[in-house]
Design a protein around this nucleic acid. Structure first.
Ligand SMILES: [Zn+2]
Ligand SMILES: [Zn+2]
Ligand SMILES: [Zn+2]
Ligand SMILES: [Zn+2]
Lengths: 160, 160
DNA sequence: GAATATTTGTTACTCAGTATCAACTAAGAA
DNA sequence: TTCTTAGTTGATACTGAGTAACAAATATTC
């Protein structure tokens, strides 16, 4: 089944009204992998100029609260969003130079996180795990893409 | 040796000029564990009103670039800063209701992250790993402290 | 249909962070 | 020391993402 359709079904199942604006926003959102709010605004308004910036923001928070969309902070610029509904949980690996984002799974980690939380009497509800580095091509050459402002590195790597 | 002294020594070793403003800012910063920029501004200006907001921000970025301070995004409000110089690497566990932050170490994870990055041809430079949940007391009672806006939960927990 | 509730777009606003720039201060050379 | 230069600071203005308010438009209920 089409990804857009399944997301729409999930929305309806939650009793959320599906307006034409929301449908367009969703249609564009599922087309991107990770996108900033402002990118989505531009993308949507390229198609239909009558949809306002506000509605895009409002829809994004609506989708977040419904648990269909996740907000990521990658330490660079604005937060990125991702339609996670129907996707298996994954963590992220990002190239600090070209910005490429790789999604990967490491099943061994998930139970260990529960364990760590329990050790301190916490009930674990969610987590974020992001790796930052240099992709293969950026290790060997500056590939011309814009360079991100480096997030702070571990001390060991800086003094080295 | 005093923590403030060792941080100052590290700064000097990097050839950064230690002005009286910077010394005050550092002195207050090492006194807090995790703090927002604006909190530090208020704290510093309570002691010396003549130190400007700008200088606090500038000093924070200076310290970040020098690798002495780390910036955390906890999904709530503004980013938090932490003087990490001389501290062993650790990850964070945060209570979504009362905001308590626990620092913990999980040595088994660190090599696994290197491994995961390598799997995709990446050179790992840094990472962030944050767990969100409810602390012991917040699981059983609303403790009166302000409730954070919940970060998005995993889908499984929302539909449940 | 009328009455009610939800969604939308416009506009104005907030608030953290940044840019500018002149005044100030410290370091270096002569 | 004095001259020169470079680095630092504070006031002010600005940016840009996100939010609040509110009236118009639309959908839902009776
Ligand atoms: Zn994970
Ligand atoms: Zn992803
Ligand atoms: Zn770690
Ligand atoms: Zn910490």
């Amino acid at each position: 089944m089409n990804r857009l359709v399944s997301v729409i079904q999930a929305l309806k199942a939650k009793g959320v009204r599906l307006t034409s604006e929301r449908q367009l926003i969703l249609r564009r959102a599922v087309n991107h992998l990770h996108f900033s709010a402002e990118e989505l605004v531009n993308d949507v308004r390229t198609i239909d100029r009558s949809v306002s910036r506000m509605t895009v923001f409002r829809t994004l928070t609506l989708l977040q609260n419904a648990g269909l969309v996740e907000k990521h902070d990658f330490h660079y610029g604005p937060p990125y969003y991702e339609v996670t509904y129907g996707k298996a949980h994954h963590d992220h690996l990002m190239c600090m130079r070209c910005g490429e984002i790789i999604e990967f799974q490491e099943p061994r980690w998930e139970p260990m996180q529960e364990e760590a939380a329990k050790r301190y009497g916490y009930k674990l509800l969610s987590h974020t795990h992001k790796l930052y580095g240099l992709c293969g091509s950026c290790q060997t050459r500056n590939n011309g893409k814009p360079v991100h402002k480096a997030p702070k590195l571990h001390v060991e790597e800086i003094v080295a």
